[in-house]
Write a protein that binds this DNA or RNA. Structure first.
Lengths: 141, 141
DNA sequence: TATGAAAAAGAGGCATT
DNA sequence: AATGCCTCTTTTTCATA
């Protein structure tokens, strides 16, 4: 399904998803079309779901990044999901195991906005908030 | 710094970072070169840090996704960071406020591997693990 | 906006299994 | 027969003025 060469391509694209097939091919000693074929197969099979951006949220004016874990009130899961879905502040969300049921990552302008955001969530569950202080690791995180 | 048109370009690239400048230009009624110029400026200023992939980890054989929050033991922050930095299983990590100090997101083959991973972390702090059950929201999450 | 240069997409062929 | 890679050609896109 996905062989060692495919994994190499993924590694390269993970660092820079806009790298050309020609350049990728040079790195792994394959022709541009072969690289392209492999990428297309991975897109078609769903291994590669899409291509995205790494943004510096602070330079976009969002000085606060945080994640909120929600302990959902009984029967409030569906309405909670519908509530948070459309917000552009929400960068990522998933259902989780443990004391809380929902993980929501957000990027916000300032403290006032995080307060307003939490105020909306308290209708659906009990929130625990963690501010993100800094990212760790390689640049491609 | 970043105007409304730039934000539109970011929105488009966030959904598909491999979209061509020509196509982006069509959507926002701008010439390919103008789009290209704006993107380059955002790259140079660091607003756009890079381009990345959205992968289906389960199709790569990683059936388990999780995040671990670590309550770091006194003086163990630096060694903890050095320990986790090189692991390919670590997809994201940041320092956080609250009861825990470190957030670590991982993708792993199976339960055995998560156990082994946690075993390494207990030397540096007290871990709390949450498995990720499912992603919520649009496809570009 | 127009241009040459570069890359992507597609077709066909060859080699290995 | 199927797969994976290559080369060649056409079309599209990029970067420069």
């Amino acid at each position: 399904m996905v062989d060692a060469i495919d994994l190499k391509i993924i590694d390269i694209l993970e660092v820079n998803a806009r790298q050309s097939y020609a350049e990728i091919g040079k790195e792994i000693h394959l022709s541009p079309s072969s690289v392209r074929e492999r990428v297309k197969k991975m897109e078609d099979s769903g291994v590669i779901k899409g291509y995205s951006l790494r943004l510096d949220q602070s330079k976009l004016g969002n000085t606060l990044e945080a994640f909120i874990m929600l302990k959902i009130f009984s029967g409030k899961l569906k309405p909670a999901l519908q509530e948070i879905e459309p917000y552009p502040e929400v960068k990522e969300a998933f259902r989780i195991t443990g004391q809380h049921n929902l993980y929501i990552r957000i990027a916000l302008k300032d403290q006032l906005h995080i307060q307003q955001f939490i105020d909306k969530l308290v209708n659906f569950g009990e929130p625990t908030t963690h501010l993100i202080l800094s990212r760790i690791g390689k640049e491609n995180f």
